[in-house]
C-alpha cells in the first residue's frame, strides 16, 4: 500500500503516458492522434515537475527564514519542453488542415484508400 502511495505521482505519470501512447497508436482520427501525443508529452512534463519537488521545500524565492527550496531547474527545463510541445502541436495541426484540403477527410482509414499505399 505504501508503495502505491509513496510513488503516486509516478503512477499518474505512467497512466497518462500509456493512455496518451495508446491514443496515438489506436486513434483513426488525426486530430485525436495529436491529442494523444499531447497527453503523452504532458505526462513527461509532470515527471519532470514532480521530480523537482523537495518535501518541505517552498518555491525557490529568497525569503528570510526559509532554508528548504524546491529544485527550480526541472521546472525551467519543462518550460522549454512545453514550448517545443506547442510547436509540435502547431505543425501537426497545420498538416492536418492541409490533409483535410487535399483529401477531404482526416480519418486515416479513409485517405489510405485514396492513394496507392507504399
Amino acid at each position: 500500500m505504501n508503495f502505491i502511495l509513496d510513488y503516486y505521482n509516478y503512477w499518474v505519470v505512467v497512466f497518462l503516458m500509456m493512455a496518451g501512447f495508446y491514443i496515438v497508436i489506436s486513434a483513426n482520427n488525426l486530430v485525436k492522434k495529436i491529442v494523444g501525443l499531447n497527453v503523452f508529452q504532458t505526462s513527461v512534463f509532470m515527471l519532470y515537475i514532480s521530480m523537482g519537488k523537495v518535501s518541505g521545500g517552498t518555491a525557490p524565492i529568497l525569503v528570510e527564514g526559509v532554508t528548504q527550496y524546491s529544485n527550480p531547474l526541472p521546472h525551467v527545463l519543462i518550460l522549454t519542453a512545453i514550448v517545443v510541445g506547442v510547436a509540435v502541436t502547431a505543425v501537426g495541426l497545420s498538416l492536418i488542415v492541409r490533409i483535410k484540403r487535399a483529401y477531404g477527410t482526416v480519418e486515416e482509414n479513409e485517405f489510405e484508400h485514396k492513394d496507392d499505399a507504399i
Binding site: 492522434k33 521530480m51 492513394d115
Partner: peptide, 26 residues
C-alpha cells in the same frame, strides 16, 4: 499530396522518439 500523410506520420513517430529521449534524460 501524399507527402502530407508521410510528413504527419513522420511527425508522430519523431515526436514519440524525441519524447522518449526527454524521458531518458529526465
Amino acid at each position: 499530396r501524399r507527402c502530407l500523410t508521410a510528413a504527419f506520420r513522420y511527425l508522430v513517430m519523431g515526436t514519440i522518439g524525441a519524447t522518449f529521449i526527454l524521458i531518458g534524460v529526465g
